[in-house]
Design a protein around this nucleic acid. Structure first.
Lengths: 223, 223
DNA sequence: CATGTAGAAAGTGCATGCACATTTATGCCG
DNA sequence: CGGCATAAATGTGCATGCACTTTCTACATG
């Protein structure tokens, strides 16, 4: 086909942006598993575009650390070594600790109120054992901490690290008692933040992440 | 011209990789100033390649945060707002504090020895007022801290943040007395690390970066 | 003289095609 | 039948060209 008829609508950004979002989402949610090959031709036909935008999307995903690339071979969903994975979890704990500390110092009255109310509401999800919904809330809880730190660059760093970690920490709430444990850890963090106790908030956040990293099911991925 | 004769050598990576390194370097070292437009066609003829690899390089630089991109307009060397710049400096201080703390706990005997020896040697550069050389050493000093933390992901985050900050902190050693001040701050950090005093190392690193951020000449860049 | 505004010029977005690299399939020999 | 050379198939790297968007320029208008 020769230039067909031009893409009708640019539904939310350019072709490449959409592809990046779409593929990143598939990686983060586990539709694409670590180690999986992403060849340009298949992706091109999958998204009904030429290889050019596909290549640009892969380049960007590579820069984000979600796929690995080396010259003359297909992109591969990133599959980090155990050592690197450990370093990401540790970095995550450090970053969350910073966010919790800064949140304790800087959150506005509104932010604190929302944090506490949402946390209280999540108790119900724990009681009825709504794993899926609790996981969603959990994401929001942590996002509140990141935003509450009121530092855009730290927000970026922690968000990026979280995305790269996501493919390896699936199903953390399947373990028995994990929901209740998570809730009570959140409780400590929230209390510290409400009291504006920066040190306590930071320590609680650090050990919360440490627990999560222990509880996380780690995927090896296929080569 | 039609496919000419194929690029003879791939001197260190693909065309795109070279371009990314080259352009990133120009941005970080200030050859390209914040706000400057980077149009694909000029870059293509500058590097004697077609627009395709140029586009991929710009995409990657965009992901690295060194250039800003929006649909249908030229890439622009990133020119961050004062608020964002502040958040990057703060993030940098937090990250350096983490690295110093972890270095105090984890550096090997060899790493500690090198750190101290290099630091002692830098005294001479201060004495003779070798701004240029001291700046080079300073970069190495901080790199030693990042490596000494023994955490690959944190290393990546701090390196990336440092690169993004570079265009805005030029000429920090021009200010009178800055060299000696930097040296004495390094001294405190080194001493704390040698004593394995994590808390002191972390505090010293934090305030060192804070001073640097004050001393940094901040460029506004042109639109 | 500022302000539109139509048309040209310049630039980006993406498709297509060829050169080269890598991988897979095929056939030969010990 | 395993090991290895070699050819076909598959895939990536980059150049080129057309469609579309933005920017510039020149000229008309209040």
């Amino acid at each position: 086909m020769k230039q067909v008829k031009r893409r009708e609508i640019i539904r939310a950004g350019t072709t490449v942006e959409q592809m990046v979002r779409s593929i990143a989402d598939m990686i983060v949610t586990g539709v694409l598993l670590p180690g999986e090959k992403l060849d340009e031709i298949s992706l091109a036909s999958r998204f009904e575009v030429s290889r050019t935008p596909v290549r640009e999307a892969l380049r960007e995903l590579g820069a984000m650390g979600l796929v690995g690339r080396e010259p003359n071979r297909s992109a591969v969903v990133t599959n980090v070594s155990g050592g690197y994975l450990h370093s990401m979890f540790e970095a995550m704990a450090e970053l969350e600790a910073i966010c919790a500390r800064l949140s304790a110092e800087r959150m506005t009255v509104d932010e604190r109120r929302t944090l506490e109310l949402d946390h209280r509401a999540s108790a119900r999800l724990v009681r009825i054992g709504a794993e899926e919904d609790y996981a969603t809330y959990n994401t929001e809880f942590h996002s509140q901490l990141y935003r509450g730190a009121h530092n855009d660059h730290i927000f970026e760093l922690v968000t990026q690290t979280r995305a790269r970690l996501a493919p390896f920490r699936r199903a953390q709430f399947r373990l028995p008692g994990r929901l209740a444990k998570s809730f009570s850890e959140h409780e400590v963090i929230v209390t510290a933040i409400m009291r504006a106790d920066a040190v306590a908030a930071s320590q609680a956040a650090y050990s919360h992440v440490a627990t999560v990293s222990d509880a996380s099911i780690v995927f090896a991925g296929h080569q």
